[in-house]
Amino acid sequence: MAECVARGEEPEILFWVGCSGSFDDRAKKITKAIVKILNHVNIKFAVLGPEESCTGDPAKRAGNEFLFQMQAMQNINTLNGYNVKKIVTGCPHCFNTIKNEYPGLGGKYQVVHHTQLIQQLIDSGKLKVEGGAFKGKKITFHDPCYLGRGNGEYEAPRTIIQKLDAELNEMKRSREKGFCCGAGGAQMFKEAEKGNKEVNVERTEEALETNAEVIATGCPFCMTMMRDGVKHFEKESKVQVLDVAEMIAQANDL
């Protein structure tokens, strides 16, 4: 972003990569897929790079409102400093926080999740999608809580998957009834409380019951949890866990 400004350019959209997308090796692949799509359709975008900082989502869900607001206000300072108007995020948690919780603290932007942007690109004809490798494949979609129930977006990722000519098989609990992957509410960063099962194992079991070859999702945390679940059932060779953005990038040979 700083370079854009130095060159006197104003990007159309800011890509908010998120901490997972920046540091987690698996999630970086999602980041690259999103970038490939943005480049493919010639959208002028920028990233904040080292100036991006955690949105504060995990701190807020864990009860640390101080830390959340510290992060929020610093990020809002940065974003407002660059006069950012439109943001696409690679993570439903960043999406939810910036879209819903930043406005009250002075950060008002038009925020979309990457699945929503991809759907807009397809709808407007800028992005053509053919099934490619996914044609006829059995796919199930795991709803990220903060995209689905949190913000009511159930259709964008499904519309995209259907464009791939794939066979979308829903899990028993999907859309409004979707079952959490086990990472939300800052659970990602701690051991689970005592119980008789891990949440991600329960959810992956349900995903595997659909006989899916691909478990699709739209969240880097869900990605981690579902991949761990697939490993738990030793199905890595048969079942892939992919972000919707990666599927589009692969199908279009980007």
Binding site: F23, S53, Q71, A186
Partner: peptide, 30 residues
């Protein structure tokens, strides 16, 4: 808070990310 969450808080405070990574590495993926 559980100790693991306190570490997460500290990481966000110090590194701007819930894990112990340096902010300067944020663009390494590129």
């Amino acid at each position: 808070a559980p100790a693991a969450l306190n570490s997460m808080f500290t990481n966000i405070e110090n590194n701007g990310a819930p894990w112990q990574f340096s902010p300067s590495d944020r663009l390494n993926w590129a």
